[in-house]
Amino acid sequence: MLEVNGLNARYGRAHILNGVALSVGENEVVALLGRNGAGKSTTMKSVMGLVRQTEGSIRYEGQEIRGKASHTICRAGIGYVPEERRIFGELTVEENLEVGRREARPGAPEWTLDHLFKLFPNLEERRRNLGKQLSGGEQQMLTIARTLMGNPKLVLLDEPSEGIAPVIVEQMAKVIEELKAEGLSVLLSEQNLHFARLVSDRAYIIEKGEMRWNGTFAELDAQPAVSQSYLAV
């Protein structure tokens, strides 16, 4: 579904990613693990066309998408949920969802308002509230729901468990399971190993812009030195 190879990314003279390679298969949930500043978000942004200086190859469903405009990438079927949530604070919950709305896509689950409100009951109660009036957890729900309105096939979830209450983190895990059950593929970036293990099929570990390790969680558990050197704080 998604094949990244030899990806380099730069901001000005700062070299952020160096030869990153990863893949996400059909209906697979893949975790991208690493510490703060390791390059997780930049990888996501590069896939989404939000980083200007990139080299290498990013193929989605066999098509090269590197260098394409981010709206084209979204229309191809990739949904992006940014780390900072970036909801539209001056728009109501419904209007936020409207911005994300796109035509149904063959081969991808179609999300309606009703369906989303079932998945995120809090949002229904607050549908007429402004985005900025929501709590952090509600904003996290809204940013995911907004992306799902675009009926993506692959969702890039950037640190969904960051900065929200533990009870919401549990809800988030259920949401990701639901996405998988609906047939979506997910690339998830995480610092929270416990959460990642709960929802993902396998994992990559990135550090200082380079891929250090990949495998299943069982393999990761068998090599405590790996998580010790790349993930422990």
């Binding site: 939000l50 405009a69 970036r86 604070g89 911005v99 992306t147």
Partner: peptide, 10 residues
């Protein structure tokens, strides 16, 4: 408010 995000939403 955030035109880059609007672009990322297609």
């Amino acid at each position: 408010q955030d035109r880059e995000m609007v672009g990322a939403l297609g």
